[in-house]
């Protein structure tokens, strides 16, 4: 297929207008189509429709892959709980060397009250 910016419009000269007209000849009432390509319904156009997003088009269609994904995620979540089974890490207390006046660690008011 053409890959230029107006490839779809420029495809018109590829279309077989006689066969399109003949396919419409026997119809009556409203018949809608969004493009002449859709109306022509050629093999190349159906293929183009199917691969509209070629990069993602065939992702997650494999049921084994999805099950494997669920299995691994389930195992990861279950094992994440095991990390709670541990002792607290040691913490250090780092006091002042010379405590400033009127500042008491963890005192809401930090004012001398006695």
């Amino acid at each position: 297929m053409n890959t230029g910016p107006d490839s779809r419009m420029s495809d018109h000269h590829d279309l077989d207008f006689t066969s399109i007209q003949s396919s419409l000849a026997g119809t009556s009432g409203p018949e809608y189509w969004r493009s002449l390509e859709e109306l022509a319904n050629t093999e190349a156009f159906r293929d183009y429709l199917h691969r509209e997003f070629p990069e993602q088009a065939s992702e997650f269609t494999d049921p084994v892959g999805r099950r494997q994904f669920m299995r691994l995620m389930g195992a990861s979540l279950a094992l994440a709980g095991v990390s709670a089974c541990t002792k607290q890490p040691a913490e250090v207390i780092v006091p002042y060397v010379r405590a400033p006046e009127e500042i008491v660690p963890a005192d809401r008011f930090s004012t001398p009250r006695r």
């Binding site: 006091p95 002042y96 008491v104 005192d107």
Partner: peptide
Amino acid sequence: HASAETAAVAGIPPTKT
């Protein structure tokens, strides 16, 4: 532990103490 009566933590003394 000077702030045991007044603050949320009892306080670890500064080196000055």
